[in-house]
Computed example of a mutant assay.
Amino acid sequence: MTLVLFNKPYDVLSQFTDAKSPTPRATLSDYIEMPSVYPAGRLDRDSEGLLLLTDDGRLQARIADPRFKIAKTYLVQVEGEPDEAALEQLRRGVTLNDGPTLPAQARRIDTPDLWPRDPPVRFRKSVPDCWIEVAIREGRNRQVRRMTAAVGHPTLRLVRWQVGEWSLGDLTPGQWREG
């Protein structure tokens, strides 16, 4: 069994090919040349951080399938400064257009020591921002972004830091290691 921990850069698709696009976009094949591994779950093109890849179908299903409820932890830069009430909404679960989410773990954190994003997050003097840590146990499309927007704090930057027992550690964008 092979398990790869990859720090997916911003603007990279969580797939190996992009045959349907008329303009080429960066994919996993630009970084990983390892036959027979596939992503266990997805990470949006505009999100960064930990993406697990494996050649073990059972492990891939366990990681990606929401019924196994493996925690995924994100460092999230949001617009504004969420108060305790907004964080409590995330902790209870919020109702999205596709139904209520499971409760999340959510807390404010100090600005993490991360690599610079290219392109940088837009900065506005008149609108403060801050960082929160959010852990969810399901994985709907753009879920964390939709959750933070639902409580009035749109996501500016999203970095997946941990999936279950696996963590990004010291991997820089585009780096990978076998785990």
Rank of each mutant, 00 (worst) to 15 (best):
S47W: 10
E48W: 11
E48C: 07
G49V: 13
G49H: 13
L52E: 07
L52Y: 02
L52T: 06
T54Y: 12
T54E: 14
T54K: 06
D55K: 06
D55Y: 07
D56M: 10
D56A: 08
D56H: 08
G57F: 02
R58W: 05
L59E: 09
Q60S: 15
R62D: 00
I63C: 04
A64D: 08
D65S: 14
P66D: 13
P66N: 14
P66A: 12
A71T: 05
K72W: 11
Y74D: 04
L75F: 13
V76S: 12
V76F: 13
V76T: 14
Q77V: 10
Q77A: 04
Q77L: 15
V78S: 03
V78Y: 09
V78R: 07
V78N: 06
V78K: 06
E79I: 09
G80E: 10
E81Q: 13
E81N: 10
P82H: 02
P82V: 09
D83H: 06
D83P: 02
E84M: 05
A85Y: 07
A86K: 03
A86H: 07
L87Q: 00
L87M: 07
L87Y: 02
L87H: 01
E88R: 11
E88W: 03
L90K: 01
L90W: 00
R92D: 04
R92I: 00
G93H: 03
L96V: 09
N97F: 05
N97Q: 00
D98N: 11
D98F: 08
D98A: 02
D98T: 08
G99M: 05
P100C: 14
P100T: 10
T101V: 02
T101M: 08
P103Y: 06
P103Q: 05
P103I: 02
A104P: 01
A104T: 03
Q105N: 01
Q105H: 01
A106T: 00
R107H: 11
I109R: 03
I109H: 05
D110A: 15
D110H: 09
D110T: 10
T111Y: 00
T111A: 15
T111C: 14
T111D: 12
P112I: 09
D113A: 15
D113N: 15
L114F: 11
W115F: 14
W115V: 12
W115K: 05
W115Q: 11
R117S: 04
R117A: 07
D118T: 14
P120I: 09
P120H: 12
P120G: 11
R122A: 15
R124N: 15
R124S: 15
R124E: 13
R124V: 12
S126E: 15
S126H: 00
V127P: 02
V127E: 13
P128L: 01
P128Q: 08
D129H: 15
C130A: 13
C130P: 02
C130F: 04
W131M: 08
I132M: 00
E133V: 05
V134G: 01
V134N: 00
A135D: 00
E138W: 09
E138P: 06
G139H: 11
R140F: 04
N141M: 08
R142M: 09
Q143F: 04
V144E: 04
V144K: 03
V144W: 05
R145A: 05
R146Y: 12
M147S: 06
T148H: 11
T148K: 09
T148Q: 08
A149M: 13
A149K: 14
